[in-house]
């Protein structure tokens, strides 16, 4: 990672987090189907420049902490046809997460 300005890490692995339901358009890396959903931080993936600003020729600083968030499939899709133990993981930037616990 770089030595550039980085937002402080607000969440830790194992913590329950909520993806903010925000109607962001443009170059946004938070898929619509995960907005408003609750998951658990699986790991911290480092810090990266904010793609929502980078895409518009901004520096994207401070860098955003990126989390791997693990969701139960049954949380995402009420009629999920597979076993209740199936999961989906996605990488979500800190600005899209809030504590759910």
């Amino acid at each position: 990672m770089s030595v550039e300005a980085v937002t402080a890490q607000r969440f830790r692995p194992g913590q329950t987090v909520h993806v903010i339901e925000r109607p962001a358009l443009g170059h946004c890396r938070t898929p619509w189907y995960l907005r408003g959903k609750t998951g658990v931080v699986a790991s911290v993936q480092g810090a990266y420049r904010d793609p929502e600003r980078l895409a518009y020729h901004k520096p994207g600083l401070p860098s955003q902490v990126l989390y791997k968030v693990r969701f139960l499939q049954t949380e995402l899709w009420p009629d999920y046809p597979g076993p209740a133990s199936d999961h989906l993981e996605a990488d979500i930037y800190e600005g899209w997460l809030e504590s759910a616990s």
Binding site: P31, Y48, K68, G82, P83, D86, H87, D91, I92, Y93
Partner: peptide, 14 residues
């Protein structure tokens, strides 16, 4: 059935 399926959506820098 007894094996978890884990989907990884590579949404960001990884």
């Amino acid at each position: 059935e007894g094996v978890e399926v884990r989907v990884h959506d590579s949404t960001a820098d990884l």
